[in-house]
Design a protein around this nucleic acid. Structure first.
Lengths: 248, 248
DNA sequence: AAAGGTAAAGTGGCATGACCATTGCCGCAG
DNA sequence: CTGCGGCAATGGTCATGCCACTTTACCTTT
């Protein structure tokens, strides 16, 4: 059989509910409708779109799940605030796996990785670790650019795992970091955490460079445990302080 | 006015669609329904939940938007595969990972898993491990059904990891097993391997049931090392003999 | 016997229409 | 001017019927 199938696109793609959802997103995206604005009543909107009310409602549920609209019984459907959107998405990501599971997984991956890197890591990859360390140390946190600080931190740990010379391990660590970053902000903003973290990083690095697997393992464990504590304290304080009261 | 309002909780919280969605998530989260499984037909499920089909459909659209289910016109509603698992597998299949890396990864994942399962594993999940063990022992290898033997073996190890109560860990192990199975046949056909493997499994299981983390860890390490040797010896003989032509 | 087409059953997709529940406003009574 | 009661607007839920897609089994054709 030939590979012409990609030439033919369906006349109408997706279900009606999906089409409606996309259409509404277009309108919101084009600023014809701004956060806080009310959409037309379901009955009217369905008529305008030439569909039934159930189909429209399915589309609205989909948008609501993704945090784009806010449905209030008795008053109407409103375009949601962007802040609400973001926190909702984060909450959903966090719901998938708990913080405990994620940090336990860090132990599973990073302790053997540190040990292996110290034992077998070749010079080039260890140099990459060292370079990431240097970049991180020279970054200035005064500007409050926490996002960049987090990226540098993640890069440092990823270099270590890569030095362990196991692609499966490295890939898994990459996915773990993604989830961790998406589910919560950096833990470095916890008072005093940044300074302590730097010291811990230094201990890990020197253990790697001196080729001491046991020390590298211990240093990594200490670091992860402290990061875990910081993450938990951050959760207990004021999670999502900027959207307080707007939650469903 | 007094602050008694928190004493009074609404009889039923949220809309029916939301309740249904939460209910389905519970079922999925409790592992009674696994990725790839099909949900009951909409009509039946709606009847079981005591609601109407439109309400159920709204809930399904919400779950679909959040990536929990996969709805296929004409065939059914299926539990979706977590995005993390999918991306991991794709990335790993693209680049060819070596046997060494795969078996090293088994150590990384399964040693802590065995230790945790022995230490904290709840009775139900340990019972699942024992059941998998029984099924594996009662299977008759005389029929030469190596594919089934391998599946049972993989199931046994997966149950252990699941007993460690970490969903991220369990998913990663699932991907690892898939790749291991796709890349090479079972190592159980190596002469004498089946018998030795059974003894090793028995030692792991008894360590788990007696709640001895250190012993569980040692037993798992021994098992993996022996499996690695068998895999290597098999590789030198007739690599991929039994899976030729069965690949996608 | 193998290949292909066809019909039927199972399942999701969509529409209609009716009624219930909540909210917010407006007018009326005090 | 204030309070409250009712009414209209709007989302929430349900029942029912039919359409569209997928899959499977069977039957025809070669």
């Amino acid at each position: 059989m030939s590979d012409d199938h990609h030439l033919w696109t369906p006349l109408r793609q997706g279900t009606v509910a999906d089409l409606i959802a996309r259409r509404i997103l277009e309108v919101i995206g084009s600023d014809q409708l701004r956060p806080g604005d009310r959409l037309p009543p379901e009955r009217e909107l369905a008529a305008m779109l030439g569909t039934s009310r159930p189909s429209l409602r399915e589309a609205l549920q989909s948008l609501k799940a993704r945090g784009w609209v806010d449905i209030r019984h008795g008053s109407g459907v409103f375009v949601a605030e962007p802040a609400t959107t973001r926190s909702l998405r984060e909450a959903l990501l966090a719901e998938e796996v708990s913080l405990r599971e994620l940090y336990d997984m860090r132990e599973v991956l990073e302790l053997p990785a540190a040990a292996w890197a110290a034992k077998h890591g070749d010079a080039a990859k260890l140099a990459a670790v060292q370079e990431a360390y240097g970049t991180m140390m020279s970054a200035n946190p005064a500007r409050g650019d926490w996002r960049r600080m987090q990226e540098l931190d993640a890069a440092f740990h990823l270099r270590i795992v890569e030095a362990a010379d196991n692609r499966f391990l490295a890939r898994t660590q990459g996915v773990l970091q993604e989830i961790l970053a998406a589910g919560m902000g950096t833990t470095l903003r916890v008072p005093g955490r940044l300074e302590r973290s730097r010291g811990e990083h230094e201990r890990i690095l020197s253990a790697l460079l001196s080729g001491n697997p046991a020390a590298a393992r211990r240093a990594a464990l200490t670091h992860i445990n402290n990061a875990r504590k910081a993450a938990l304290s951050r959760l207990h304080e004021q999670p999502y302080a900027d959207v307080a009261g707007r939650q469903a």
